[in-house]
Design a protein around this nucleic acid. Structure first.
Length: 320
DNA sequence: TTGTGTTTTACGACCTCC
DNA sequence: GGAGGTCGTAAAACACAA
């Protein structure tokens, strides 16, 4: 497990916890969170207003092993903090984290509906059993294992830099910056570490996008034409699409309509994005299988000198 | 800066399902 | 017949080494 670079952990009701692996640009299984002192900030992107969880883990070497969940609702002027000791544990496991955040999600259920379905048609709303908190986290280790200094919980001292194109905006960013600009316009190194600005960015990030996003090279949102081939989706559009993909590989008709309205993309664009995303998934899985089969072959070669073609990568791939 | 490889949008061809 | 699936591919956008 790699704790040395920023990562995103996603938990939803369909899949096991996954870590957004920046080096692979995809998700990988993430059953065990960490065994070192660390901080996990959970941003529930379907919330309005923002809710932040700071989940701390004390390393197994500590004599007072525990997991502490601090729930903080922004804006900070009316902070409603609750600190809950979830119990002793040698390490943090995502099942426990998921439990705590799901409770909070229930508290904000109405807001979730408003965000996902910008309509007064309550029949379109998700039921409590349908919504299972597709939550995204930011994670980094705590310096010097100093998890007892609560002043650090909501004021990160280690700015997160997201390297994935599906990432939320950087933590510290000039407040005048437009978060809906494409990725290439928003990768400057952060220079301002104001906590207030940090919160402002979070709040802006959650606001529904009501107008179509201008691409880096203005194309009036045209699709393939003779002069303009394609547009580049914004960070937020890609992030929301990616988040939806973690919930389900196939987009439903109501969700497609809702996303179309929220993101300012046509339903056709969303449909094709999912098709392309599934193709990407298949490509990644194929690569993994090839790697696995290669490793299997190597181990078999070590055991026997047989060169039976049934053990070739192609055979393995076809029959796994 | 430039060349090159990869990823991201978008589409056509063809298929299945209702 | 229409909608949406996969597969293959074009071309823009991007990443990165030299």
């Amino acid at each position: 497990m790699n704790n040395n670079y920023p990562s995103i952990i996603t938990v939803d009701h369909e899949a096991n916890p996954r870590l957004y692996e920046t080096s692979y640009n995809t998700y990988i299984p993430y059953p065990d969170y960490t065994t070192t002192a660390s901080k996990l900030e959970a941003f529930d992107y379907n919330y309005w207003p923002t809710t932040t969880h700071n989940i701390l883990a004390i390393p197994p070497s500590s004599t007072t092993n525990s997991i502490i969940d601090q729930i903080q609702t922004t804006p900070s002027s009316s902070i409603n903090q609750s600190i809950e000791t979830l119990g002793s544990s040698p390490s943090v496991h995502l099942s426990q984290i998921n439990t705590s955040t799901t409770i909070s999600a229930t508290h904000h259920h109405h807001h979730i509906h408003q965000h996902l379905y910008p309509t007064n048609e309550s029949s379109n709303w998700l039921t409590p059993t349908e919504y299972q908190s597709p939550t995204t986290y930011r994670h980094y280790n705590y310096p010097n294992n100093n998890v007892c200094d609560q002043s650090q919980w909501s004021t990160p001292t280690l700015p997160m830099k997201y390297e994935s194109s599906y990432s939320p905006p950087p933590y510290y960013e000039p407040s005048s910056h437009n978060l809906d600009q494409p990725l290439s316009d928003s990768k400057e190194e952060p220079s301002d570490s104001s906590y207030a600005k940090c919160h402002e960015q979070q709040m802006n990030w959650f606001k529904p996008q009501l107008t179509p996003v201008p691409p880096k090279n203005p194309t009036n949102g045209k699709t393939r034409t003779r002069d303009k081939y394609r547009i580049v989706y914004t960070d937020r559009q890609r992030y929301e699409l990616e988040n939806e993909f973690t919930i389900s590989k196939y987009i439903s008709i109501p969700r497609k309509a809702a996303l179309s309205s929220t993101l300012g993309l046509s339903e056709r664009q969303i449909k094709i994005w999912f098709q392309n995303r599934r193709a990407k998934e298949r490509k990644i899985n194929k690569k993994r299988q090839e790697i696995c089969s290669r490793q299997l072959n190597n181990s078999n070669d070590a055991d026997s000198a047989s060169d039976d073609d049934l053990e070739s990568p192609t055979y393995y791939q076809n029959y796994v």
